[in-house]
Design a protein around this nucleic acid. Structure first.
Lengths: 220, 220
DNA sequence: TAAGGGCTTTCGGCACGCCTAAATCTTGGC
DNA sequence: GCCAAGATTTAGGCGTGCCGAAAGCCCTTA
């Protein structure tokens, strides 16, 4: 199996990411949207990945990682998350600034350097956004979580992860002192007309936009 | 001027590297050999770099960096050498293991991360091989140096730099306790039939192969 | 000074990864 | 049960960066 290119790694990582927190099959058009490329480009790459044994794909059907594809995907995710953790812990980056840098470096660093980072950081289990870091064998320790947007009033829990898709929202949350590990209780659930309201441990009340509530996962 | 690609950066860096220690003009075929690619590929890229104002080139003539090309080249060299320094000082790499990693990362890391490394390392002036690290403005502090292969018997000086081209030789030198900063005196100059002999400060005598003597630069 | 050898360049090709436009397939709604 | 909207795939193209083969230039040597 020939060594994957950065583009192929991005496809696999994105397919993996789609099913990490919600068990949905991904379709070519959704993948294209996530990668910001044309659907026809996806068709081509999918053919190559399927030929390489990394993807199952029946024409006009959804995409599924094979065991080999899953291994390759978790390896990339491991790189990404270790790099993010390193950027925050060692290099003075904020957790809302690391995504783009990791997006590039995940395709560049050697296994040797990755191992050195991992050891230096003490084999961390979670990245700065709370996402679990797969171990060197690809095993992922995932905790049951629910999306804050779907939590009902009265739900109490810790913030397990906050998606790093939108760094503006990450910055707002940071100024609101909400981050991975924060305890909170839902005061008012999200509705079509009302923002979500949560109470922090110190009694403070925060209102969260629907967009923010869609990015935050709390313990069940 | 549009942003350079990794390939273009490699061309500029290599052209710069050719004249850094010996003031020779580089020709397309030499550049091709250094990059490990076909001469015809060099012709193409040279045309692009010349069009971008980074290179002077008259057909069938040698290659010269323009001021803009020199700036671009020193920026890449700065990245390369800071990364090497960081790998050795922070990540536990040996000085003979850093070249390949830096070769890749120099094209990937952001200015933000580069600045963080630079600050963390205390703005180092030299990399692990003794090569000067250009500052953020591209200025390079270079000390007069002569190649050990050309030093005459009796010459005394410090090792200023050891080219990182051949990591096997770097490893041998490390076991011989010869590295940047080492003081040494030439006992017997290199000849066609004799290896070079040097004395270390503790009185120990070392014989160096012609290949090694061609990589080591000492203070004049 | 003319020829030949060594560089350099030109030319046609290829792999990759992307695009748009035009087929083609699938499926939900009537 | 059919049909059209929407998703997917095919077809043809483009830019980048590489290749080998062939043509062209330069210059040394006889």
């Amino acid at each position: 199996m020939k060594q994957s290119t950065p583009a192929a790694e991005d496809y696999l990582k994105t397919i993996y990411g789609h099913t990490e927190w919600q068990p949905n099959l991904i379709t070519p058009s959704v993948l294209a949207a996530r990668l910001g490329i044309a659907p026809s480009s996806v068709t081509e790459m999918v053919k190559k990945l399927a030929a390489a044994g990394l993807l199952h794909h029946v024409p006009y059907g959804p995409l599924m990682l094979t065991p080999a594809g899953l291994r390759a995907a978790t390896a990339v995710v491991r790189r990404h998350r270790l790099i993010e953790t390193w950027l925050v812990r060692d290099m003075g980056f904020h957790w809302d600034e690391v995504h783009e840098e990791a997006e590039v470096l995940e395709h560049s660093i050697s296994d040797r350097l990755l191992d050195a980072m991992d050891a230096r950081l003490g084999h961390p289990a979670h990245d700065p956004h709370g996402d679990p870091i797969p171990d060197a064998n690809g095993a992922v320790a995932r905790e049951p979580a629910i999306l804050l947007a779907q939590a009902t009033a009265g739900h109490s829990g810790r913030v397990l992860r906050i998606s790093d898709k939108d760094s503006a929202i990450l910055r707002d949350l940071a100024t609101d002192s909400i981050g991975p590990g924060s305890a909170l209780t839902v005061v008012e659930a999200l509705t079509v007309v009302e923002p979500l309201t949560v109470r922090l441990p110190d009694g403070q009340i925060r209102q969260l936009s629907p967009a923010a509530a869609e990015l935050i996962w709390v313990s069940a």
